[in-house]
Amino acid sequence: MLNSNNPTDRFIYHFNPEETTITMQTKNLEVYYGKTLAMQHADIQFKQNTITALIGPSGSGKSTFLRSLNRMNDDVATVKGQILYQGVDINQPKIDVYEVRRRIGMVFQRPNPFAKSIYGNITFALERRGIHDKRVLDEVVEKTLKQAAVWDQVKDNLHKSALSLSGGQAQRVCIARALAVQPDVLLLDEPASALDPVSTQQLEQTLRELKQDYTIIIVTHNMQQAARLSDYTVFFNLGEAIEYNKTRKVFTRPKIELTDDYVSGNFG
């Protein structure tokens, strides 16, 4: 049904690098699952301290794109092209993926707290990196839980199992956990899809506040959420970025017809 669409019919906004700090950028990205090409034509620049939303129908390659950004696809896919992080191409064999993933953190669709205490969830990665000073760890726990806006709910139960938390609280603890290793980019793949409307609202508020310190890229299937929350929006379809622009423009005056169809609910 979409085959009639001319594949070169795209609008991708480009920043002027002289004026804007670009935290991440993809160039000539191609992602293959086995031999099938799942993602291509997505040269996107992500501006520092903004929220960029990735929208598009299910199966359009949003997750594939997002997971390439911190090399989480290494085991399952072949990723070709460049992924620049502060100007350094991190899609090279020589790059240490663990350091990349520390700096480019990720939060997932379903809250996935570890079978540890709340405290243990947050300190775990630090301890694995050799930080055992209780004072430092205490501080990190408090700071990140406050950043993720769950400190008040859990501060009296830090040593309770994180598996006993509600979905919304668990997802925030997962955000705090990601913040604990001091990333500067935060990737979120439909982080609110398992949450109720109230928790979703709170989560969005939290992300707005986190924007001051982090560059945030969020996949969402919820167009209202993208419109409410993000500064920039990428619209994906059939494994390609179709339109990338200021969120307001994507939703009010899309340049591409396909985008218009999607944001006005005509397909997807």
Partner: peptide, 28 residues
């Protein structure tokens, strides 16, 4: 659940650390 492994890898931990410290305890 695979979510647990993803969680560990997403924090920049090695697969092995994730298995030993997250997956194995969860499978206990």
């Amino acid at each position: 659940s695979d979510d647990q492994r993803q969680g560990g890898l997403g924090l920049g931990l090695s697969k092995y650390e994730t298995i030993i410290h997250i997956v194995v305890p969860a499978a206990l």
